[in-house]
Design a binder for these strands. Structure first.
Length: 714
RNA sequence: GGGCGGUUAGCUCAGUUGGUCAGAGCGCCUCGCUUACACCGAGGAGGUCACAGGUUCGAGUCCUGUACCGCCCACCA
């Protein structure tokens, strides 16, 4: 080939897609092909990665790009080493996230999901999934992922849905899943319960309202006049003062609590106060959870709307009065404020308290408020009947396997984070009042009222035989199904050949931000369902931020579309940048100037190859790695030795998960040593008269270049 | 209230068993259209490796403390 036939500048677009299609068509991403070609055999231990399934909420972002780059690197490295290699791709229905996205779409048409009804709405989400699911796989192909597309899975596939049911029923029958009425985090916008993890705490400037509750005594037994008249507490003579950040919850108070050790309030314990607005008589109780130092030292107790208060209520047998509707409006327990929005009620109630002379003062206050991870609405702690996973016994085993070293976390510092979380874990609320997801496989009998969990839809009550049964309306937390991912994608609960050979998987590679959400759950559910660890190594990468260090997100408008980057600079340039840009577990800021630099690197490789190839001549024959040692020049020996050193270093680094350093080493060698020095020096002999010298240089050039390209392949 | 990470050239970041570790990319300055590459080549300026102690023959690299920045966890009414 002459130089003229190879363009001077490397054009990724002309190569990448063509090459990828060929790879895929040849079946190079499938372990079966390795067996068929004799590149590996089934007696070997396979290298397996489950790809973290992207949510079908939208298109891929840079987080997916770094995941894909790192995993593809590992997969290609192990495949090249001759290990049977499997990389299972797929996508996640992402319950609440996807439902919200589609609801937002609907809102543009002026519709809500309730306008469509459950069935039509779910149909609508499926349409969305079809569209974005295929966009995602196309984008993954653009990233060059060498996964086995024939084994692609979706969390709502039939097989995976069955896995969800089997897992649920099994846990249910062991008493590890239960239904109960407890304090949960309620999102009034999504109108569903969410787990503790889905609550995002933010420090916010609010107020602390000091309110006094009149005390019942011989001279005053309750309200004198209508609430808001200014005369409501006219006859009151004694008060107890409380401080609150949520005045509207006063309406749900069923006690006032003080510290048992607080001398100021000892005389009041056992007496009663009159609840403002509603005139309810509530007891004054002593409870050790009250901090005498805070506020007034007296706390209003709202068991239905505050976790601490709920526990106080449990200890003292207090009623829990829910004063809110699902969308955080005041319900019919709210007296004069029925129907008002929670904040509207707060304003009005505060104004009325002032009118009645019960508002003592308002202080500025700062505390952290829970927000919904998906829609940012302020969470309302609320008592509600939900399904939970009893997680302590699962967590103990999950801690154990890491302690024993059966599962290793890279970088190691996350091990401590993992323990801390696991050791303090609380039961996992898994039911969601949503429509998009795996329906809870529990049926209730309308006749005998009993419940039953079943893998296949029952037709009658197993307790009384009645055919009048109905399924639970709720769906499961999306992380329940993704928690089964490493084995559900391989066929579990069936005993398939894939499951037997490829499970447990080898590496779980993902961002550290979902260590708790996902990784921890996979370990717990994996141990419980399969009796085995789901993977032996966890590799956690950092988050990609923009050049200002901000988290990338669509709402901030600072998200960089990986497709645009690939279109402009090429997939290799993007991948190399992502791989060399950070160390494990550390965040990285993506700078386009580095992507450009690596585009230039790709071009450098192209031109080095062009130089070597076009200088071979027609009579060239390859002489792999067999040299007449005595004839080697100093330069030859130098480049060969440097090159061997490089291979050793890169291999060691890749084994140690030091991908960035490995990439940099190759970069430095190829550019700084091979191109800058060896190619330049080789020109003397290449263009000289001595044919034997020419052949030797040619052979070394080809040999070193080819070997480095292999090193670079992952 | 706990825990973690960061602080290295103007900017963005590497530097994992303490001794060519003071580096890369971008930017900047000087040259250069030499038969691979101007998405290039040759050369150059630029850092008391946050601060204070300590261990050591020797410390960005280990220990202690401090200061900022960021993140995670936590039922602070």
């Amino acid at each position: 080939m002459s130089q003229k036939e190879m363009p001077k500048t490397y054009d990724p677009q002309a190569t990448e897609q063509r090459l990828y299609e060929w790879w895929e068509a040849q079946g190079y991403f499938k372990p079966e092909t390795q067996f068929k070609k004799g590149l590996a055999d089934r007696s070997q231990k396979p290298f397996v990665i489950s790809m973290p399934p992207p949510n079908v909420t939208g298109e891929l972002h840079l987080g997916h790009a770094i995941t894909a780059s790192i995993e593809d690197l590992m997969v290609r490295y192990h495949r090249m080493k001759g290990e049977p290699t499997l990389w299972v791709p797929g996508s996640d229905h992402a319950g609440i996230a996807t439902q919200n996205v589609v609801e937002r779409e609907l809102a543009k048409e002026g519709l809500t999901r309730h306008d469509l009804g459950r069935e039509k709405f779910v149909e609508r989400v499926w349409q969305w999934k079809e569209k974005y699911g295929s966009i995602i796989t196309e984008q993954h192909r653009r990233l060059g992922v060498s996964c086995d597309w024939e084994r692609e899975r979706f969390t709502l596939d039939e097989g995976l849905s069955r896995a969800v049911r089997v897992a649920f029923v099994r846990l249910y029958e062991k008493g590890l899943i239960y239904r109960g009425t407890y304090m949960v985090n309620w999102c009034p916008r999504c109108e569903t319960a969410i787990s503790d993890l889905e609550v995002v705490h933010q420090e916010e400037a609010t107020k602390l309202w000091y309110v006094r509750y009149p005390l019942v005594n011989d001279r005053w037994q309750g309200a004198d006049d209508a609430w808001g008249s200014g005369q409501w507490a006219a006859g009151a003579t004694e008060y107890i003062e409380v401080a609150t950040t949520r005045p509207e919850t006063i309406l749900g108070d069923t006690a006032v609590a003080v510290s048992p050790n607080d001398p100021r309030y000892q005389p009041l314990v056992g007496r009663e106060a009159i609840l403002p607005a509603l005139g309810r008589r509530i007891p004054i109780i002593a409870d050790p959870s009250v901090d005498p130092e805070f506020g007034t030292g007296a706390v209003k107790v709202t068991p239905a709307h505050d976790p601490t208060d709920y526990e106080i209520g449990q200890r003292h047998g207090l009623a829990a009065i829910n004063v809110l509707t699902d969308d955080a409006k005041m319900n019919d327990e709210a007296g004069p404020y029925i129907g008002q929005d929670r904040y509207e009620c707060r304003r009005n109630l505060v104004a009325d308290l002032q009118k009645e002379g019960l508002l003592v003062k308002i202080e500025d206050y700062s505390h952290s408020l829970g927000h919904c991870q998906r829609c940012d609405t302020v969470i309302e702690p609320r008592i509600s009947t939900q399904w939970f996973v009893k997680v302590k016994p699962l967590a103990e085993r999950a801690i154990e396997v890491v302690r024993q070293g059966r599962i290793r976390i890279v970088p190691e510092r996350f091990t401590q984070v993992y323990y801390n979380w696991m050791e303090n874990i609380r039961d996992w609320c898994i039911s969601r009042q949503l429509w998009w997801g795996h329906r809870i496989p529990v049926w209730y009998c309308d006749d005998c009222g009993q419940e039953m969990a079943a893998v296949t839809d029952p037709t009658q009550c197993q307790h009384c035989g009645s055919a009048a049964i109905h399924q639970d309306e709720d769906v499961l937390d999306t992380w329940f199904s993704s928690g089964l991912w490493p084995f559900s994608t391989l066929g579990w609960p069936d005993d398939t050949p894939d499951l037997r050979y490829f499970y447990p998987t080898t590496v779980m590679e993902t961002g550290y931000d979902i260590l708790f959400f996902w990784v921890a759950r996979m370990i717990m559910l994996g141990l419980e369902c399969t009796g085995n660890i789901p993977f032996s190594t966890i590799y956690l990468h950092g988050l990609i931020r923009d050049e200002q260090g901000q988290k990338m997100s669509k709402s901030r408008g600072n998200a960089i579309d990986p497709l645009e980057v690939m279109n402009q600079y090429g997939t290799d340039a993007l991948r190399f940048t992502l791989l060399t840009g950070s160390t494990p577990g550390n965040d990285m800021k993506l700078s386009l100037s580095r992507v450009e630099a690596h585009r230039n690197f790709a071009n450098k490789i192209w031109n080095a190859t062009r130089f070597v190839v076009t200088n071979l001549g027609y009579s060239f024959t390859v002489g792999w790695g067999t040299w007449d040692m005595a004839a080697l020049t100093l330069a030859d020996r130098w480049i060969l030795s440097r090159h061997n050193r490089l291979i050793a270093h890169v291999t060691r680094l890749l084994e140690a998960y030091q991908f960035g350093e490995a990439g940099r080493q190759i970069y430095d060698f190829l550019w700084g040593e091979f191109c800058d020095w060896y190619i330049e020096i080789s020109k003397l002999r290449l263009y000289g008269r001595d044919a034997r010298q020419r052949l030797m240089v040619q052979r070394i050039l080809v040999y070193v270049l080819e070997r480095v390209l292999r090193l670079l392949h992952p």
